[in-house]
Design a binder for these strands. Structure first.
Length: 876
RNA sequence: GGAAGCAUAGCUCAGCUGGUUCAGAGCAUCUGCCUUACAAGCAGAGGGUCCGCGGUUCGAACCCGUGUGCUUCCA
């Protein structure tokens, strides 16, 4: 077979993904094995693959593929989230482009368009996950707005309502004037803004001309003011007790109230109170029984209550009213001021606090078992630091606003009769039954029942995800649910710990009576090299699909994972792409080298020379496999990848292959060839979860494989404990080789120039075992043993062995620098020796230190002495 | 305003129960090599007051206190 110069990802990746899928390797059905289950955090159905998805899904794929190799029956469930606000906004936008105004459509017509949009674009992100290599069980693909899922959400709502945990009420909510819907607190992002603090004086209603000055960053809300509030102990305003003042422009007479909520230091110490448009003012209003005047309409324009400004945009009014107040001479001054302003997570417009009738879910009781589950370790968080954050939030949990003024989503199953009585039921028919039972006198008439227009918050459906993907609602006793639930690992971003993770835990206990997953792994947030969060607006988010096209999915996965320290944010650096690409080529070329031996394999070739290399490589493989297993268990995936990378590049390619590499055109022993292929396979296997395509490809080129012999399915072997002696000798051999090469370099020897090497050592057996490797690796024509120095040589000391290097072709040997260096080393060692001796002579140390520490200090002492001796002898 | 986390090489980070596996890895840098798998490579090297200060200890990158700087979450 003709092998290309480098690894070609395009064809290989497509081919292998199709092969795996066709073979049904991604599919899972319950069997006698232990399951390992992950439910994918469903991306928004509107989504396209970005770095966050790439990280999150690569992590999951690594866990799934590794678990599969460890013998688990793995099941990874894909799906999408209907994402009510985001999707509805997209559909509205699409309609606008087609010249259709949402307002002219009925609910059903709109939903028709929405489903059409979903069918057309909704699967894009799932297709993109295939490109990434994700081993997802596609037959299980779920969607949070599917018919069965819908029914489940409705059931849960009715259930909570009947338990008294859902209620309807007017509260101050976060209003998104663009999407025209309520948002939960979690959907609001606070940003620091440069605002203007405007000082406005309100006239006191008295005979004298006197004023009270307030400061505000939102002057447009002045029209909704229904009081001015000052601190009861503020002497400046003590004389105003029982007085009233006049709201300018509105010319409304409002009371001056006293409350110790006021911060005397802020502004003028006098606060304008607008119960309709600020949560704190609202609370004050309740306390002091104030009137509520709503001056801002649902679209962010001023309402009729705003008098002359009715219909104008809130921000336009903010400017205009200040101008008008200035004309009236009521503006005292304006100051620059930075404050926190809430923005809608979905539409990025400024949130308007607004009073509104919404549906709420009481969370306190639901939270209790969920708090305990994490505190008691029934659910593990990685990294553990998120446990605190979780507990803190859960213990201060507030009622959840679950209604949204949208159409795309589960419509709240509540019906109102003509008198406004509420009936919550799964269906209209059931609501009708309730009506008949409740109002028997009217039962004969056909009641006019009107269903609630609002839909439920998207998270009110996705909190059921781990149960509902296994069809909990419709067939609660089904085999899959019993087998796969609770799932094993949830992999998600810390940003949605409250939105989603906490609520899934609550839902799991409340409805299924069981935790939804056993552990949660929080990935970092993907940032750019400068540490900025990747975002569309900054334009610092690389085009993932282009990257996959250019470099291949393996390389993209590599580059994301290599810079994903456990528990920290990911500073994505495109340099990782080159590193990953180079790594693929390294393996590809190693494969070409080994493949090239195939035709030269012969029986009876003497291979004793390389038996050490084989033993050492086996030992390293066993050792590092153990390290990787530990790292993976602790979710140190990045470390795990680095470890495998280094094992392949350094141990296997740089050392092992060079050690066993036959001379040009020399035959290769069948034994060496076989074991080299075998080691290569095991290395590929360790790497496969991280880089599935290139490993599968090379695996298949290394040998002709039987049908079904694919790397993805290969079970990890149990390694016997590596021989410590072999490992130690390997390290020693490397040290000797490096030391000689260093000396060669410093003597400016050309790589082709041969040397003679004479060794004065106590470890003769070790050198005899490795002497052929050593000769080859330092390009020596001869390596021999001696018990005395060699004239005309450079001496090298490695550990306590003395090596003498002779360069036959070098005209003059300048050993001055060499000697100086050795002298320096002696100095250093003597200092070191002193510090060790000080310890050993310290009675307190000898009394308090652990015996093994004392022993190790003694050994250090002896080693240092030996080394100094060797160096001194070497110097002559 | 409340809370948490972080600070180690130019960059990104490891560093367990305090003790030479303790100052380490990768990338970047420098030097020499087109050596018969790979120049997208090979070989070798240099580089750090472990943020400052104080304490505990025979012994501190690690524990405690404090200061400074940064990040995140909540209000």
């Amino acid at each position: 077979m003709e092998l290309s110069k480098n690894f070609q990802h395009q064809q290989a990746e497509n081919q292998w993904y199709n092969h795996w899928e066709k073979k049904g390797y991604f599919k899972s059905t319950p069997d006698e094995r232990e399951p390992y289950t992950i439910v994918m955090p469903p991306p928004n159905v509107t989504g396209i693959l970005h770095m966050g998805h790439a990280l999150n899904n690569t992590v999951q794929d690594i866990l799934i593929r590794r678990a599969k190799m460890m013998g688990y029956n793995t099941c990874w469930v894909p799906g999408t989230d209907h994402a009510s606000i985001a999707t509805e906004a997209k559909v509205v936008g699409m309609l606008r482009e087609r010249g259709i105004d949402k307002k002219t459509l009925s609910r059903d017509e709109f939903l028709g368009y929405a489903w059409e949009w979903k069918e057309k674009y909704g699967g894009i992100i799932l297709e993109q996950l295939r490109k990434l290599g994700c081993a997802l069980d596609w037959d299980r693909t779920a969607f949070t707005l599917d018919e069965d899922y819908y029914a489940s959400v409705i059931r849960v709502f009715v259930d909570l309502y009947n338990k008294g945990l859902i209620f309807r009420g007017v509260k101050m909510i976060n209003w998104d004037p663009k999407a025209k819907t309520a948002l939960s607190d979690e959907e609001v992002n606070h940003k620091q803004m440069n605002s203007k603090l405007t000082y406005v004086k309100y006239r006191i209603d008295s005979d004298k001309e006197e004023y009270i000055t307030i400061a505000t960053v939102r002057p447009e809300t002045i029209l909704g003011d229904t009081a001015v509030c000052v601190h009861p102990e503020d002497e400046r305003y003590a004389h105003l007790k029982g007085k009233y003042c006049i709201i300018p422009i509105a010319n409304r007479r409002v009371p001056i109230i006293f409350d110790d909520y006021i911060d005397k230091e802020f502004g003028t110490g006098a606060l304008k109170v607008t119960p309709a448009h600020d949560i704190n003012d609202y609370n004050l209003g309740i306390k002091h029984n104030l009137e509520v005047i709503d001056t801002i309409a649902e679209d962010g324009t001023m309402s009729d209550a705003a008098g002359p400004y009715a219909g104008m945009d809130r921000f336009a009014v903010r400017k205009k009213i200040v101008e008008d107040l200035k004309e009236l001479g009521l503006v005292v001054k304006e100051e620059d001021y930075t404050n926190q302003v809430g923005f809608s997570e979905r539409t990025d417009v400024v949130i308007e606090p607004r009073l509104s009738m919404q549906w709420w879910c009481k969370m306190g009781d639901l939270a209790k078992p969920a708090i305990d589950a994490v505190a008691d370790g029934d659910i593990d968080f990685h990294p553990a630091k998120f446990k605190n954050l979780y507990r803190h939030w859960m213990e201060n949990i507030k009622d959840w606003c679950v209604s949204r003024q949208l159409w795309w989503g589960q419509r709240i199953p509540a019906w109102y009769d003509a008198e406004g009585t509420i009936y919550v039921a799964k269906t209209a028919a059931e609501a009708h039954e309730q009506y008949k039972a409740k109002k028997p006198a009217l039962a004969a008439e056909k009641p006019e029942m009107r269903q609630e227009e609002d839909v439920l918050d998207t998270w009110f459906s996705s909190w059921l995800w781990p149960m509902e993907v296994f069809d909990w609602n419709k067939t609660p006793d089904n085999k899959d649910l019993a087998y796969y639930y609770p799932t094993n690992t949830l992999v998600t971003a810390p940003e949605i710990i409250f939105f989603w993770v906490a609520r899934m835990i609550m839902a799991g206990y409340e409805f299924k009576g069981q935790l939804p997953f056993k552990e949660v792994y929080f990935t970092g947030i993907v940032r750019d090299k400068q540490g900025r969060k990747m975002s569309k607006s900054l334009g610092n988010s690389p085009d993932l699909l282009k990257m996959i096209d250019d470099y291949g999915a393996d390389v993209v996965r590599f580059s994301v994972m290599i810079c994903s320290p456990a528990g920290n944010d990911v500073l994505f650096d495109e340099a990782g792409l080159d590193q990953g690409r180079n790594f693929c080529n390294k393996m590809w070329n190693a494969m070409k080298l080994v493949k090239g031996w195939e035709a030269r394999v012969a029986d009876g070739v003497e291979d004793s020379q390389v038996s050490f290399a084989l033993d050492w490589m086996d030992a390293r493989l066993a050792e590092v496999s153990g390290e990787v297993a530990e790292l993976m268990k602790d979710f140190k995936l990045s470390e795990g990848l680095k470890t495998v990378y280094s094992l392949i590049w350094n141990d296997f390619c740089s050392w092992y292959l060079e050690w066993v590499k036959p001379a040009m055109d020399a035959p290769v022993s069948a034994h060496v060839y076989e074991r080299t292929i075998s080691v290569f396979e095991q290395l590929l296997q360790l790497l496969h979860p991280f880089m599935p395509f290139v490993t599968e490809e090379i695996y298949h080129i290394l040998r002709t494989r039987a049908e079904g012999d694919d790397l993805i399915n290969k079970q990890l072997p149990a390694y016997s404990a590596p021989t410590a002696e072999t490992l130690k000798q390997g390290t020693m051999l490397q040290e000797v080789i490096s030391a000689v090469r260093d000396t060669r370099n410093k003597s400016q020897l050309k790589p082709k120039e041969e040397i003679e090497l004479w060794i004065d050592t106590q470890h003769r057996a070790f050198y005899e075992r490795t002497i052929d490797i050593l000769r080859k690796q330092v390009n020596a024509m001869q390596v021999g043993f001696t018990t005395e120095g060699k004239h005309g040589s450079l001496s090298i000391v490695v550990n306590t062995d003395k090596l003498y290097m002779i360069m036959p072709n070098a005209t003059a040997v300048d050993s001055g620098a060499q000697k100086e260096e050795m002298q320096k080393e002696i100095e250093y060692l003597k200092g070191f020796l002193l510090s060790v001796e000080k310890k050993l002579n310290n009675e307190k140390f000898m009394a308090n230190a652990k015996p093994e520490v004392v022993a190790s200090e003694r050994k250090k002492h002896q080693d240092a002495l030996n080394k100094i001796k060797a160096l001194e002898e070497s110097l002559g």
